[in-house]
Design a protein around this nucleic acid. Structure first.
Ligand SMILES: [Zn+2]
Ligand SMILES: [Zn+2]
Length: 351
DNA sequence: TGTTCCGGTGTG
DNA sequence: CACACCGGAACA
């Protein structure tokens, strides 16, 4: 039982991220973005993906929020990399009010989930994408001629795709059934079996077996469908090369936040770190490396996961707090966005 | 190959 | 609804 639990991890698993990761944070926190002529939106974009208002120069207030990370990203624009730290919530709130023009995204959420979200944001630093997507421009100045244009300003289509996709898809089966958008999941196969199972048949072992089998099959099916739909999926920016793991197996406790590069960049301007063919899309979040759980090096040996050697779960005590947070993604904002759109419906002709 | 993230499911 | 658990899959 403990064989697996063995704390060997200490060395690599829970390496101190402080060294590699912390500095970066500190650095950018201090940094303040001032209104960028060309990319004002970006700054704001991070915390509030949808704020078109970013354009509003009025905001001395928002400015503070934005922090940039010049690290790996192309030095092109400092503004490009804005990291939402714990601070950003403030900004969000301020923003909305100040920018009264487009109170796009409600800040409340952010404030709460800041920790968890920060990853998300970073991960989905479509930031760049967001802006364009946001069609901020569109909001301000309706450009009837080419609706498409406004939206597609994005650097990469892919990204946009996922974003939307994710949002919708998550929304659809996770939280709100608001729209009937998702067609991909509706396969009858899954719905039907579920019901039947519950209802009944519980008795003969054979039936049970069958049941399980079906279960598994269902899962598989679902998984496959998800995959296909997700395919390009997260364009998380986490970077892998940074982790220093000595132990095979255990996941290095490196925060995704530490060194991330925008996926776009990697694919666009450089091919160095990863071979061209290989994308560094990450499907799994990484441990933050800073929380209590991450800093524990040994398995407690008493929790369920520790006891159950079949378990694929990490020791409860070592569980990263950040990972505990639900992934927040575009989907989260989707409803809000929709609302906004509706509210501002007049301006959107494409709807 | 081991570790464990993560989505789905089961249960109270 | 929240939590516990299972097990597939990502990642090293
Ligand atoms: Zn444990
Ligand atoms: Zn952690």
């Amino acid at each position: 039982m403990m064989s697996r639990a063995t704390p060997e991890t200490p060395s690599n698993a829970t390496d101190e991220p402080s060294e590699s990761g912390l500095p970066a944070f500190t650095t950018f926190q201090a940094t303040e973005l001032e209104t960028k002529p060309s990319l004002p939106a970006q700054v704001t974009a991070v915390p509030v993906p949808i704020s078109p208002s970013s354009a509003s120069p009025s905001g001395g207030s928002l400015t503070q929020l934005t922090q940039l990370t010049p690290s790996p990203l192309t030095p092109l624009q400092p503004a490009l990399t804005a990291l939402p730290n714990s601070n950003f919530h403030t900004l969000a709130a301020v923003n909305v009010q100040t920018t009264r023009g487009y109170p796009i995204v409600p800040a409340p959420i952010q404030a709460r989930d800041i920790p968890g979200m920060q990853q998300q944001y970073i991960d989905e630093r479509h930031i760049q994408l967001y802006q364009p997507i946001t069609t901020t421009a569109t909001f301000h100045h309706p450009q009837p001629p080419q609706p498409h244009q406004g939206i597609v300003t994005v650097l990469k289509n892919e990204h946009i795709n996922f974003d939307l996709k994710n949002g919708i898809h998550h929304t659809s089966f996770q939280s709100s059934p608001m729209m009937n958008n998702s067609s991909f999941m509706d396969t009858p196969s899954m719905t039907t079996p579920k019901v039947s199972n519950k209802n009944g048949i519980n008795g003969t072992p054979s039936s049970q077996v069958t049941k399980e089998t079906r279960k598994k099959e269902r899962r598989k099916i679902r998984a496959s469908s998800l995959e296909s739909s997700t395919e390009s999926d997260t364009s998380s920016a986490m970077d892998i090369d940074g982790n220093s793991s000595g132990n095979p197996g255990q996941v290095a406790a490196v925060s995704s936040t530490d060194n991330f590069k925008s996926p776009m960049h990697s694919s666009m301007d450089n091919g160095d770190q990863t071979s061209t063919g290989e994308k560094q899309k990450q499907k799994k979040r990484k441990r933050c490396g800073e929380c209590i759980g991450c800093q524990k090096k040994d398995n407690c040996g008493e929790c369920a996961p520790c006891r159950n050697d079949k378990s694929h779960q990490i020791c409860k005590q070592r569980r990263c707090e950040k990972l505990t947070e639900k992934k927040v993604s575009f989907s989260f904002y989707f409803p809000f966005i929709m609302k906004m759109l509706i509210l501002n419906g007049e301006r959107f002709s494409f709807f």
